[in-house]
Amino acid sequence: MDFASLLGFLSGLALIIGAIFIGGDADLFVNVPGMMIVFGGTWAATLLTVRFTDVTAAFRAAYIVFTRDDTDQQKMIDTMLQLSKISHRNGLLALSKVETNSKFLQRACMLIAEASTEEMVRTTLQTEIDSLMVRHYAVQDVFKKMAMYAPAFGMLGTLIGLIQMLSNLTDPATIGPAMAVALLTTFYGSLLSSMVFLPIAGKLRRRTQVQITNLEIIREGTLSILSNDHYANVYERLSSYIPEVKRKPLTRHTGANTVKEPTL
């Protein structure tokens, strides 16, 4: 469980609900027609903009926001250094027997074992990275689109409410309540955009950046192993991917690690 995501969502929701209850009657903030306009309009516009498969993939990926991020660049560097040791000790062909949960790393090891050229390895792995970025950004774009549409439909609901209110100006007692109802749709749209859709898109973007960095470490480590670089050179090449204060000394790199990659 990602504690930061859970804490952020629950604390934000609690503060908003608390402010509503402190300010008065919570029933004033419930308006079914306004919800229909905002939720229904946002959903319809999103389906009109992107493919249905992207929408379903986006909602499946939303749970990642609240899952623990197990990706670790230092562990990935440790893994590549261990693979470098294996290749120097037992030969490149021995990497074909490496067991890992990472399909990307497994494919990199197979490319090395098959004596592929450096250009082929670089192109193949980079194509995989680019394809993953496209898939992930398509998912993030769904939430960005919804964050854009929700306030727009909130404003549309407000205009509808104002039109209905202005048509009954002969009864001044109804103007205040009608205005409050008209503004509720703007509230719904802003709440969905700033509390749900934009934070989810932002967290997924950050997760993608971390995962891409791990894949780049695998790519560069694979090229170093294929070039038969010295163990220390592999370390220097890969350690540049993490901040200097977080780098472990070369003498502390022992043992292999199993890598798990979340997929969208």
Rank of each mutant, 00 (worst) to 15 (best):
A58C: 04
V121Q: 13
Q140G: 04
F104T: 06
Y188C: 03
T71P: 00
S5N: 01
A138F: 04
R122C: 06
L7T: 12
L92N: 15
F104R: 02
G157V: 03
K75F: 08
Y137A: 07
M146A: 14
T208H: 08
L264A: 12
L250Y: 15
F153A: 04
A147T: 03
L191S: 05
R207F: 02
E99I: 10
F21D: 00
I64D: 02
F9A: 15
F66L: 04
E114R: 07
K75E: 14
S84Q: 14
W43S: 05
D25V: 01
E244I: 09
E261F: 06
L191G: 00
M133C: 10
L6A: 14
S167V: 12
A14W: 02
P249L: 11
Y63S: 10
I20G: 08
A4D: 13
M165V: 13
M76W: 13
L191T: 13
Y231I: 10
L47S: 03
T185Q: 11
S239T: 14
R207D: 01
T158F: 01
M179V: 11
I160V: 15
Y149S: 02
M195H: 14
Y63I: 10
G18L: 03
L226W: 00
R237G: 12
N31T: 11
N168K: 15
T185C: 12
H230D: 09
L159N: 00
I175V: 15
L226E: 00
V142A: 05
G154E: 00
L111Q: 09
H136W: 07
Q82P: 03
F104N: 02
Q126E: 14
G161R: 08
L105I: 09
G34P: 07
K97E: 15
E99W: 01
G8R: 11
T123R: 11
P243K: 05
F39N: 04
V142T: 09
N257V: 12
P33K: 04
F66H: 04
K144W: 01
P199N: 10
K75V: 05
M120T: 15
T251P: 00
E128K: 06
S190G: 12
T49W: 08
V32T: 07
A61G: 12
L83I: 11
A182W: 03
L204V: 00
L48V: 09
P262L: 05
L132E: 13
M148H: 05
L162Y: 00
A19C: 11
G18Y: 02
D130Y: 03
G189V: 01
I37H: 01
T174P: 04
